[in-house]
């Protein structure tokens, strides 16, 4: 997706945020760009015309699970629905020169890997996959291999990596620290009692 500042409103438009479920957003990913006619939760997507000029509708990229993007991907609203839509569509990894912070965090909560690469590396990847190509991502080894035989290393925070590999229950893990939290809370209450209702 060769454009910068792709925002979460573009990834999943607001009319779909009315859903109180966590799944089923894939068909509406990039909705305004992907379809020629307007849609909402009630309109079956089969009845809508695809925009032939949109990247994801291009046969060369059909069924892609890696999204190559430009700087500041995922800017705008905090809606986790954006990541749910990518994940539900089948995107497992997004590569860009930079990501918006909240979007970046949300990815890790949903098993989507955001990879930050230098602008010129991204430029080269765009060139290489222009006609559709397979990239192989090895998360444990932190490398991307390309059809031309390049091996590109990428950085990832160790804790976030472990979470992706093992799929941990964040809340369960934090609750194992309940005693520490409780002790902190008691101290905090003593120093700033007005932060707590009686």
């Amino acid at each position: 997706m060769d454009r910068s500042n792709v925002d979460t409103d573009a990834i999943i438009p607001k009319q779909y945020l009315k859903s109180i479920r966590r799944s089923g957003f894939g068909p509406f990913l990039f909705d305004d760009w992907r379809y020629l006619d307007a849609g909402d939760l009630d309109t079956p997507v089969e009845s809508r015309r695809l925009n032939p000029d949109f990247e994801l509708n291009d046969a060369r990229y059909a069924g892609a699970s890696v999204l190559l993007a430009r700087k500041n991907f995922g800017c705008g609203s905090s809606r986790e629905h954006a990541v749910w839509a990518l994940e539900n569509y089948g995107i497992r990894c997004v590569m860009a020169p930079s990501f918006a912070d909240i979007f970046f965090n949300n990815c890790f909560k949903n098993g989507v890997l955001p990879i930050v690469l230098e602008e010129k590396v991204i430029d080269a990847l765009f060139e290489e996959v222009r006609d559709g190509a397979q990239l192989t991502i090895d998360l444990p080894a932190q490398t991307i291999s390309t059809p031309s035989g390049q091996n590109i290393a990428f950085d990832i925070d160790a804790g976030l990596k472990a979470r992706l590999v093992q799929g941990l229950d964040d809340i369960g893990l934090t609750l194992e620290r309940a005693d520490v939290i409780r002790a902190f809370e008691n101290k905090h209450r003593q120093s700033q009692p007005w932060l707590f209702a009686e």
């Binding site: 905090s78 986790e80 909240i102 965090n105 909560k109 964040d170 809340i171 934090t174 609750l175 809370e185």
Partner: peptide, 21 residues
């Protein structure tokens, strides 16, 4: 003060804490 996604909303509700860099 900062915005969070829905997974962190649940984490806040359940633990009153968030993991942050």
């Amino acid at each position: 003060a900062f915005g969070i996604g829905t997974s962190e909303v649940e984490h806040t509700l359940a633990t009153q804490c968030l993991w942050q860099k």
